[in-house]
């Protein structure tokens, strides 16, 4: 596992020396309608969580695209590493019996 933002960057740590003036990065998730889950829509810079919500409203919901917004500091997102993709998801590969199509049921049996 590696600690980094969901959409990148692929390397960690500060990118330039000197005093930090860039506002931190936040990932934005929007629930577009009641009944749907929040979905990642992008990221933005903001000095704090409150401003991140305000900015997210202006940037990502100018046309009633949202009922609710989550913002998460990008640095707090823990992502699986694409290099381990094989190993990580491997255990699911040989368990075809987890899928309904693994079982044969005669056509005569309905509603199943």
């Amino acid at each position: 596992m590696s600690q980094s933002r969901s959409e990148g960057p692929r390397s960690e740590g500060p990118r330039s020396e000197g005093p930090r003036t860039e506002w931190p990065l936040w990932e934005v998730f929007v629930r577009s309608r009641q009944g749907l889950s929040h979905k990642h829509v992008g990221s933005l810079h903001a000095p704090d969580a409150e401003m991140a919500i305000q900015n997210a409203r202006d940037v990502y919901t100018r046309r009633q695209e949202g009922q609710s917004i989550w913002v998460v500091p990008s640095a707090e997102i823990v992502a699986s590493s694409p290099d381990d993709k094989g190993e990580l998801f491997d255990p699911a590969n040989d368990k075809v019996y987890r899928h309904p199509t693994f079982y044969s049921v005669p056509d005569a049996v309905e509603n199943m």
Binding site: R10, S16, T21, E22, G42, L44, V59
Partner: peptide, 19 residues
Amino acid sequence: GHGLYLYSAAETLDASRDE
């Protein structure tokens, strides 16, 4: 907004916004 979406996309490639 379009500018911001695009800067964000570039940032996923390790480009810094300030740079």
